[in-house]
Every structure is written in C-alpha cells, then in structure tokens.
Amino acid sequence: MDFGKLVPWNWFKKEEEEKGHIVPVKIEEDVHLFPASIHELQTEFDGFLDSVKRTIGSKWINNPLIRTDLFKPSLDVASDGKEYSIKVELPGMDKNNISIECTNNILKIKGEKHQEKEEKKKDYYRIERSYGSFERILDIPDDADSTNITSSYKDGVLSVVIPRKVLPKKETRRIEITSES
C-alpha cells in the first residue's frame, strides 16, 4: 500500500519556514483537533485580533514596523490524476503587478496592490481595502512537472496549472537474513 497517497502534501512548508508561523486552515466544524476549550479560545482570540485591526485604522496598518501579512490573498489547491491547480483570489489587481517564479520545486507568487486613485471631492472616513505587497510560497510535490507550469488571470482570480509527471517506480530489493553462528 502506498501510504504517501494518504498523507497530504504540505504545500505551505517553505512559507511556514520563512515567516515562522502556521498558515490558517479552515477546519470543518465536525473535526476537533483541539479540545473544545482551546478551540473556542483560539476563535475568540482571532476575533479579538480582527477587531483590533479594524479599530487601529489605516495609519497604523500602513506603518511598515507594525504591518505583518495583512494582505495575504486566499488560495485553493486541488489536484486530480493529471494536474495540480492553484487558484489565488486577487481582486482589483492588474496582472502586470503579479509575478510567478518556480525554483527547486518552490513556487513563489508575488504581487503588489496599489491604491489607484484619490478623489479630492469626497471626504473618506473609512476605506476597507487592502493595499501593499504579498508573497505566497508553495512547496510543490516531487511529481509536479515544474517545467510546464501555465497560468492565467481573469476576473480577479489567478489560475496556475502544474501538470503531474509519472515518477519512476522505486525498485524493491529483498535482503537475505542469515543466521549467526
């Protein structure tokens, strides 16, 4: 039995190593990886941090000393027998401000979102859009064909397709057991 198929590939291994934190993962309500009290505590703490971000306002959020991963676009990773597909939500971004690089089975998706226009006639009291640069780092599996990666951008969604290649089968060698005299 090939146990490798049962264990999901950690696409975010390099991103976690670089940033020193774990990327949040949506967990279905039926699955509890933590005791209920710790899970509830984490949910409350996340809500508290979100309210702090909203309360502080854009003056503090745009401060480079405080800003940490506030603009981190969501992405979906899926696969079938032929290819891996990655979809990144980048609403309002120009495709010329997005770059994709692949080196040593590490896929980097980078970009920068700019505030494009300022209206002098209106007084803004609150703007709820994220601006700034982002970088998502994905550790692609060994069976990914990194030389034939394609991408497209439409309606604020970046689609990256990585074909899968057939890996050579590993040869199993029997080891003879001898008895000691």
Rank of each mutant, 00 (worst) to 15 (best):
I177Q: 12
S37I: 10
F12G: 06
S181E: 15
W11G: 03
K120P: 02
L65E: 04
K120M: 04
K113S: 00
G47V: 05
T55P: 00
E18R: 11
T172Y: 11
E40V: 02
K120D: 06
S159T: 12
L49S: 03
P163K: 05
F34Y: 15
A36N: 13
Q115A: 11
P64K: 12
N63S: 14
L158T: 02
V77R: 02
N63G: 04
G4N: 15
Y124M: 00
E171D: 11
P141Q: 10
C102R: 03
H32T: 13
W60R: 04
T178F: 15
S146W: 02
K120A: 07
E118C: 04
I137S: 01
R126A: 00
V25C: 07
K26I: 11
W60T: 05
V157E: 03
K108Y: 06
L49T: 07
P73Y: 06
K59G: 04
K108T: 12
K19R: 15
R164F: 04
R174I: 07
K5I: 09
E171T: 14
K13H: 05
K110I: 02
L33K: 13
K87F: 02
E112S: 10
K121N: 08
W11N: 04
L49V: 13
E101C: 01
S151P: 01
S133L: 01
P168E: 15
I162M: 07
T147L: 13
S159N: 08
D46R: 12
K165G: 03
V23N: 05
S79K: 14
L49F: 12
E29T: 06
T103D: 13
L33D: 07
L90I: 02
G4S: 14
P141L: 08
K72M: 04
V25E: 14
H114M: 09
F134G: 08
T147K: 15
I27D: 05
K59V: 06
D50M: 08
E89Y: 04
F48M: 13
K59A: 05
H39P: 01
L90T: 00
E128K: 00
S37L: 11
D69I: 01
L6I: 10
L33F: 15
E83P: 03
N97D: 14
T68E: 05
I100C: 07
Y131A: 00
K19S: 05
Q42K: 14
